[in-house]
Design a protein around this nucleic acid. Sequence first.
DNA 1: TAAAATATGGAGACGGTTTCCGTTTGTCAA
DNA 2: TTGACAAACGGAAACCGTCTCCATATTTTA
Lengths: 185, 185
Amino acid sequence: MTKPLRADARRNRDALLAKARELFADGHFDMRFDDFAKLAGVGTGTLYRHFPTREALAEAVYREELAAICAHGRELRATRPAADALAAFLRGFVTHLHNHQGLARTLATLMAAREGTLAEGGQELTLVISELLAAGVEQGTIRADVGAGAVMLTLQGLCAAHDQPHARTDADGAITLVLDGLRRD
Amino acid sequence: MTKPLRADARRNRDALLAKARELFADGHFDMRFDDFAKLAGVGTGTLYRHFPTREALAEAVYREELAAICAHGRELRATRPAADALAAFLRGFVTHLHNHQGLARTLATLMAAREGTLAEGGQELTLVISELLAAGVEQGTIRADVGAGAVMLTLQGLCAAHDQPHARTDADGAITLVLDGLRRD
DNA sequence: TAAAATATGGAGACGGTTTCCGTTTGTCAA
DNA sequence: TTGACAAACGGAAACCGTCTCCATATTTTA
């Protein structure tokens, strides 16, 4: 599965990721792709070998962060009533997006992607949400006629709009609607 | 305001729009920008003079369509209880998007745009929705603590996801959540 | 330590975008 | 009408980011 990587290859890959993380954190998302390579001190070819596209790089940068979010979602589901867990998860998601612009930007792309490794991240998130919904249906606190896709679609909106003026307020409002709309009580 | 346009200029502009409409209707959204010019029988420079960017062209193509949608929304507001009008408007919007991929694609861009003429289209839609909401608040059928931005954000999600597998089902679900979440009764 | 396997780097090809300016077309006043 | 001026045209060529290719270098294996 996970093919063993040659020493220099791993070193270069890590250098690229580190530099990308640094630049993303500073809000530099739109660099010339080649420049990532230059700044990381590797050749253009090396960059392309490790990350064929800009999105692949972003995906690698945020993979762990997204996995952590999903893990947090599962933990919530295991330790709280489903409706509470869902609310906490979505509210936390909004806050996290608000504090991590790069993640929002990346997720907007990931969710739009329909094939390949890129889509995986989005699918894991969908899975977590559908588990939360299923638990809520089981507990009778969440309606059964709306699927995880509908919620994901709202999240996609949040991500796509993350850099608009009233993004935070609007995002909070949208999540409120989703939560109240889902509630069955 | 509306500067008088020279005869040949108007002719070329119309040819460009007509060809773009035709191509968009056939699902050809990703043409080389130059080719619009060639296909419309005008020079590259002429294309750029009339529509500086791809988005400007798309915006011009769908401007009337969007205006019609907004007009329809206002008409609904004037002739029905606000909650009904809002539901009809949003449901209709989903159906319309589903039947007009090009509009969805264009709106996704328009809504993301934050400045210039491009943003205008998005703003008019926001305005219509906030009028519908305001009417509902007045009539006591819609909650007052969530703004039009929250709804727009969901619509942005619909547009961004319009070409995904379960887009229609998910869109219907998301709108259901928005409507039920907004209802105050 | 030599051969095989893997990875590197960066020059340059590629292709879409955009500008620039000499020519054409339309407008308007006389 | 016609002449002069302004507005618009067209498309060749400059521009610029992306991506490939391969001679060279590094690591691994035997």
